[in-house]
Design a binder for these strands. Sequence first.
DNA 1: TTGAAAGCGATACCAT
DNA 2: ATGGTATCGCTTTCAA
Lengths: 349, 349
Amino acid sequence: MKGVTYLYRKPTIKTIAQLAGVSHVAVSRALRGCSDISAETKERILKIAQEIGYTPNAAARSLSSKRATSVGMIVPTLAENTAYSAVFNQISMVAAEHGCTVLLGSSHRSLELERKHCQMMCENRVGALIVSPSGSNVSHIKEACHGLFPVIFMGGKIGFEEDFVLTLNYKHSAKLVVEYLYQLGHSDIALFTYAPENNTILQKKDGFIQEMKKCGLAPRMYTAGHADDTSTAGQDLVEQLIMEDTLPTAIWCASDLMAMGVLSTLRNHGIRVPEDISLIGHDDLYFGRLPGIELTTLHTPMKELGDAAMQLALGLMEREQVEAHQIFHPSLVIRGTTGPAPNKAQRQH
Amino acid sequence: MKGVTYLYRKPTIKTIAQLAGVSHVAVSRALRGCSDISAETKERILKIAQEIGYTPNAAARSLSSKRATSVGMIVPTLAENTAYSAVFNQISMVAAEHGCTVLLGSSHRSLELERKHCQMMCENRVGALIVSPSGSNVSHIKEACHGLFPVIFMGGKIGFEEDFVLTLNYKHSAKLVVEYLYQLGHSDIALFTYAPENNTILQKKDGFIQEMKKCGLAPRMYTAGHADDTSTAGQDLVEQLIMEDTLPTAIWCASDLMAMGVLSTLRNHGIRVPEDISLIGHDDLYFGRLPGIELTTLHTPMKELGDAAMQLALGLMEREQVEAHQIFHPSLVIRGTTGPAPNKAQRQH
DNA sequence: TTGAAAGCGATACCAT
DNA sequence: ATGGTATCGCTTTCAA
């Protein structure tokens, strides 16, 4: 290891005070931009601070002022196939604008790690915690945080029984999907889902049934596989329908990954998308816009969610009025995998 | 806003001390698990702490102990098409095991934000900073951190002139690619790159030329577009070669996204992959393994990098011996877009 | 406008 | 084994 020298002793406000010939209180005031200090001493202090490379100590500051300067965030994982990255990006951006740091932890879908991260957030006295829980049960989170700071729940798994919740309306997704497909002339539409049947899946199914009925259509629904490998589930389901020769004219998949499984299987069987069958995903993951894929899907406004979460956190920290419960709506992104319903005669199978 | 009540005053070690009838020093010792305290008082203290829901204050702790309990991390962005998420996941995991929190900031490729995040890391007195710089020039980072803590640079853009660097050997990528393709019988191989020509691109080009020469082959190299839209660049380049009727039998793209542009364009032209032409990407992004894509590519060991970065950070914080410079090697992931070189006669164009 | 003194919640050091 | 006291770096409160 190469010898690296660090400052033996970092300058504090007292260091500056000595150099400027004032009390450390005056320095504190100057640094915080208080008004009750003469412009000239303030300038002198600031200049010295700059020269000696003074950096305030956030720990000392928040210890004596009893104000938090950070927020916590806990996500299941930041893997590339999830959308939490977009949420975090926005949170980090807004936080930085307000001089607020973000403590991020990924729970890897382990309740134990989730609890541990909460514990660390407590010890660090964050001003608020934003969490996308790994499951629908959040009692361990509330217990670990025991009212030390407000907890903002994010995502579709949590209902409004919690104090602060930002959620997505997946029924609205169903509405957009069915309306769009119906208008394209589709009447035989299937929904593909996977286990576990959490809130987000249930909402999609409920909404689907409801909207199909509105259009006077019979909803078809199929379930297979598990959330951690939905593309295989999509493959399996579509293989089954092909074998039974009961393919609908349009399929809505509960996730983009599932849609990818469906898309490749259809193409392998020589079934054209969208000419023979239309396909819609959900979440608008990055790969959906790639050339050669161009998946029609539902965009979940993760950036807006991140923004709202951070604004809520800041509002809570400043003890302002806040909107404790907010609902966000997915929007339809029409790309290349959807088109008019084929005539019966046109269909190849 | 619903009325939410927070603890008016959080319990401290003094609260516990009163309740247990001991000094706060004894409490501190019990909580830290010191040996110089009788088992019975220790147990009593721990029990009370548990009962009243005591949570240590990290700020106070690190202020008086002068020890850091957090590390900082700065990334350009955690968008879904980057691999930093995988690095962070691992860092968060290792950090949590050591009771260390991670302050994460995304610079959105802005030097100003990068500097601002450094400043906040300084104020928070992190024990070490792990940064994937947005560019090759890192003087503003070093200046902003001015020796307050060790800075660990990560990624391919930085050379060993910095104190702590974890880097990837992209020349090795070239070696793996050329050896593999050569062994498959390819002799007409092209490398597609994009601007800007940073270290990572230069290494790939250098390595490519070198390895091709070793095999007695003439390297072909093409450049187009910019790093923020490499899939379009890939499309443009391959269109050009198709028009000139000078397609090689194998293409190596500097990024998976670029390879996606190439793949779709080839298929649109009825050129089969891998029968007519082989295709290799770089980075092993998530979508490459999806059904219907199955891109042969180079895997960059981001998890290992994250692990090493955090181990290095912890080692530095504990003032242990560390490996200041580490090189990681990409590995070849063979999937469906590569195959034996076609006979001239077999080729369709 | 300025400063002295008292904390914030913990640890370190030195007695006992 | 236990406790008193100083200290960490800063803000707050009060008095001048």
